[in-house]
């Protein structure tokens, strides 16, 4: 099997070195760029399977790079940001980033995100019945089963759960979810979202207070597993 190629765009030599060692020892092929300009040229001339993009680049913000490459680069971008910069993270996700990691990050977390994003890259079409441990979601017949028992969900609850499950592993921002489910004009109405997520959790989670399926990404959105 061909090695997956990852382009790292980060101006810190230490981070690039670290990522090089981690990624190569996990059987990925890595190319590196230390400026936004160099990164965009590399991504265009030799499109990688995944881009790890630092938000704070010297010549241009990572968000601008993302905006620029997203018009012609269709594969995944994972954003690397510093802690507590939820604003940029939300913007990056709304611009189409597949995921994000905050520095400092743990290696296990990095590899898990990369694997999850590459897996999503490869599955082109979504199956009609999705399986998550004890949960089965039939998108066509609109049926949700937990431990083989059919759950009673309202129409909105199902739509929300379907949106989550189609994007399993991916962080969805509040704005994105609100726009998809309730439409334009409801993007700031997060109280609806909180209420429905709480209701769905009561139905699908074994322990709604320590949810395993719909996980809150603090200040950013939700991630479905």
């Amino acid at each position: 099997m061909n090695k997956q190629e990852i382009l790292v765009i980060d101006d810190e030599p230490q981070i690039r070195k670290l990522l090089e060692i981690i990624l190569e020892s996990n059987d990925y092929k890595i190319t590196q760029a230390e400026t936004a300009r160099e990164g965009i040229i590399l991504a265009a001339s030799h499109p990688p399977d995944l881009i790890l993009l630092d938000i704070g680049l010297p010549d241009k913000s990572g968000l601008e790079v993302l905006k620029e490459i997203k018009t012609w680069y269709s594969k995944a971008v994972i954003i690397l940001s510093v802690q507590d910069d939820e604003e940029s993270i939300i913007q990056a996700l709304d611009l189409g980033a597949a995921d994000y990691l905050t520095k400092p990050f743990r290696t296990g977390e990095l590899l898990a995100r990369i694997r999850s994003v590459i897996r999503r890259n490869q599955t082109g079409s979504i199956e009609s019945v999705l399986d998550f441990d004890n949960l089965q979601i039939d998108l066509i017949n609109r049926i949700v089963k937990k431990n083989d028992e059919i759950l009673k969900l309202t129409s909105t609850e199902f739509n929300l759960l379907a949106l989550f499950s189609k994007n399993a592993g991916k962080v969805l921002t509040h704005r994105y979810i609100l726009k998809q489910i309730w439409g334009v004009g409801y993007q700031e109405e997060t109280q609806y979202l909180r209420v429905f997520v709480a209701q769905i959790r009561k139905k699908i989670e074994d322990n709604p207070n320590q949810p395993l399926h719909i996980v809150t990404e603090s200040g950013v959105g939700y991630r479905f597993n």
Binding site: A198, N209, Q210, T216
Partner: peptide, 17 residues
């Protein structure tokens, strides 16, 4: 401040966990 509707019970459970 980034004010947003928050479920304080959920926040407490998240922190404890």
């Amino acid at each position: 401040l980034h004010l947003d509707w928050s479920d304080v019970n959920e926040i407490v459970f998240g922190i404890i966990g």
